[in-house]
Simulated assay, not measured.
Amino acid sequence: MIRIYILGMLAQTVNYPYMIRKRLLEVQPYTSLSEGKFYYDFESLRKKQYIETVETIQEEKRPDKTMYTITNLGRDYLEEELYKCFKKNSELEDLYIAINFLDYIDTKKAGLIFEDTIQKEKKRWKKFEEKKKILLSGEKSSNTTQFITDHAFNKAYFNIEWMEKLLAFIKKY
């Protein structure tokens, strides 16, 4: 997701790594993001020619500031990766970054992809629902099993509800 964020930010405007990392930590403050990992991902995008240097700004008594922009190849990659996010992620938290960059994809296409993801998630939990009945009907079913199972299902249904809200948001976007 770090790479998607970097590309999305550079699709918006020319920028430099330090500022992009700072903004990422503001948007997702709970992210544990080491400087090393961030700069590794940044350099990887540069080597793949998804981003390129625009200029290096030199200021007195300050380190050089290298400004970057996204390339056409990077824009194509960003779009592809955003669609993948809506296809493979069923936890809303995993989509936070992708939601920020809806301007760079066809939201109708993203909506169709995400609708399919929601349906798969609903089917998956329906299968669990059948197993739940069997599990809880046994004599050895305990209060703790019931408690844990209830929590898991409530969390899943809450997540699906929010996925549907996100789908509506995408469709209106």
Rank of each mutant, 00 (worst) to 15 (best):
I70W: 02
F158Q: 14
Y39H: 11
N72R: 11
K122T: 05
P29W: 06
K108A: 10
F128Y: 13
P17W: 03
I2D: 03
I99L: 06
R3H: 08
R21L: 11
K120E: 07
L92F: 06
A11M: 07
G36S: 15
A110V: 08
E121R: 05
K88V: 14
N100I: 04
D116F: 08
S142Y: 01
I99Y: 05
K37Q: 14
K47E: 11
R46Q: 11
M19R: 15
M19V: 13
E60R: 11
Y83R: 04
K48N: 09
K22V: 03
I170S: 01
E60P: 03
K47W: 07
E164W: 01
T53I: 15
I4N: 04
M163A: 02
E59I: 09
L82G: 02
I134C: 01
K22Q: 10
K120I: 06
L167A: 02
E60C: 04
M163G: 00
K172E: 14
E164A: 05
L166W: 01
I148G: 00
L112N: 14
L136P: 01
E43V: 09
E26T: 09
L33K: 04
E129R: 08
L135Q: 05
Q119T: 11
I70C: 03
T145W: 04
K120G: 05
I4S: 00
K108R: 15
M1G: 05
I20V: 13
F147K: 13
V27F: 10
G8E: 01
H151T: 13
P17V: 02
D41W: 07
N154W: 02
A168M: 09
E139A: 10
C85W: 00
T31W: 10
L10E: 01
L45M: 07
K84R: 15
I6H: 01
L112M: 14
L78K: 03
L166T: 05
K133R: 13
S90E: 09
F101R: 02
Q28R: 12
K108L: 12
I97T: 03
F158C: 10
L25V: 06
G36C: 10
K88N: 11
N154K: 12
K126Q: 10
P63Y: 08
I20L: 06
Q58M: 12
F114S: 00
I105G: 00
T69Q: 12
T71M: 07
P29M: 06
I113H: 05
E52L: 08
S44C: 10
F38N: 02
D64E: 15
R3V: 00
P17F: 03
F153Y: 05
K37M: 14
Y40D: 13
E161I: 06
Y77T: 05
P63D: 09
L25E: 05
P29I: 06
T31E: 11
E91L: 14
A152V: 13
A168R: 12
K47P: 00
K172F: 04
G74R: 02
I170Q: 00
W125M: 05
E93G: 08
F86D: 03
E130K: 09
E139M: 09
I99P: 04
K109W: 07
I134D: 01
T107L: 03
S34G: 15
P63S: 10
K84A: 11
I70T: 03
D103F: 07
K123R: 15
K47S: 11
